[in-house]
């Protein structure tokens, strides 16, 4: 094809005829594409149907946030009610409590669980014993493969009145308390369990990025008299910056959803004042109390904030650092 386009213009008729397919390619209509690649398109039928039904139909289903939904009635609701359900949660004091909890828990998770994998990866990078490095990696990845149900079960056991945490408290002469019944402990426990489960696995991408940094940079800096800390600051960190930015954007994108399943498994009514977040509140009012339209309005609100956060983080990152998702 490249040879044909290279044919000199204004040549013989034969050459003009040869140049034709190029022109045709520019006018690649759907009919032509379908005739040529119909087998390839059959591969797309089921997956696209899946996306339309299970991803895009529910997106349209969000319309019931603006319409009254009655179980058994129209799945897109029966009548328009405007912003009625939005006003309902905006005027609800409980909603603002769970909103604040979500933001606090999301920020804590972001501030602690985002930088720690970078620190751990850098520390692993300083190890000279390959075997020790492999052992640390293998062990620290393990919690990633555990079901959230098991993680929650472990957390509840460790923090129970007879669990390890209270055994330590007892050892130092403190009074054991049932930690999961104290609202003030929930955030610490939740974030600690996130650290335990995600930090090891989070190092993988950074370790991969570290191997791509040119060794010559380190050699040159060593000759210039840079110590290990200066090398880390001026060579290693800039080297993994694109990876950091991409992961930061993704983290910000899941900010509002804060580990819904884990929070749901860990929380109990005694600690709702700190442990209830938007997604779990939505689950309770939407599914358990069957207020479908009200729940959808809250869910839509959460999803739109999440999308806005991703888009602005991506935009800011592209402007400031030059790294972005798209």
């Amino acid at each position: 094809m490249a040879l044909r386009t290279a044919a000199p213009p204004g040549g013989t008729t034969a050459q003009a005829a040869e140049a034709r397919p190029v022109v045709l390619r520019n006018k690649d209509t759907w009919a032509r594409a379908l005739r040529r690649d119909w087998r390839l398109y059959t591969f797309l039928v089921l997956p696209v149907l899946f996306l339309l039904i299970f991803r895009y139909l529910p997106m349209l289903g969000n319309v019931i946030a603006f319409r009254r939904f009655r179980p058994g009635g129209n799945i897109f609701g029966d009548e328009w009610v405007g912003l009625y359900y939005f006003q309902m949660f905006i005027q609800n004091q409980q909603f603002w409590t769970v909103f604040a909890n979500t933001v606090i828990l999301g920020l804590l998770t972001l501030l602690i669980c985002f930088p720690l994998p970078i620190v751990l990866a850098l520390m692993l990078n300083e190890l000279r014993s390959r075997r020790f490095k492999r052992i640390v990696q293998t062990l620290s990845y393990l919690p990633h493969f555990m079901s959230i149900v098991i993680v929650a079960g472990i957390v509840l056991q460790l923090t129970s009145i007879t669990g390890t945490v209270n055994q330590v408290v007892d050892l130092f002469g403190g009074t054991p308390v049932a930690l999961m019944q104290q609202p003030e402990w929930f955030r610490t426990i939740y974030v600690s369990s996130e650290v335990w489960q995600t930090v090891g696995w989070g190092t993988i991408l950074y370790l991969a990025a570290l191997t791509t940094i040119d060794d010559q940079l380190y050699e040159a800096s060593r000759i210039d008299g840079a110590n290990r800390w200066q090398q880390t600051w001026h060579i290693t960190l800039p080297g993994i910056r694109p990876t950091m930015m991409v992961l930061l954007i993704l983290n910000i994108g899941s900010f509002m959803a804060v580990g819904f399943e884990k929070v749901l498994l860990l929380q109990n009514p005694l600690i709702y004042s700190t442990a209830d977040v938007i997604s779990t509140y939505l689950y309770r009012v939407g599914i358990q109390s069957a207020q479908f339209s009200y729940g959808t309005a809250i869910g839509l609100f959460e999803a739109v904030i999440g999308l806005a956060l991703v888009l602005s983080a991506n935009f800011a990152s592209r402007r400031l650092v030059g790294a972005s998702l798209w």
Partner: peptide, 14 residues
Amino acid sequence: TMFFGGGLIPNYIL
């Protein structure tokens, strides 16, 4: 669909 979804309740209804 990675960044925007239908949410819990529309999925449940579906």
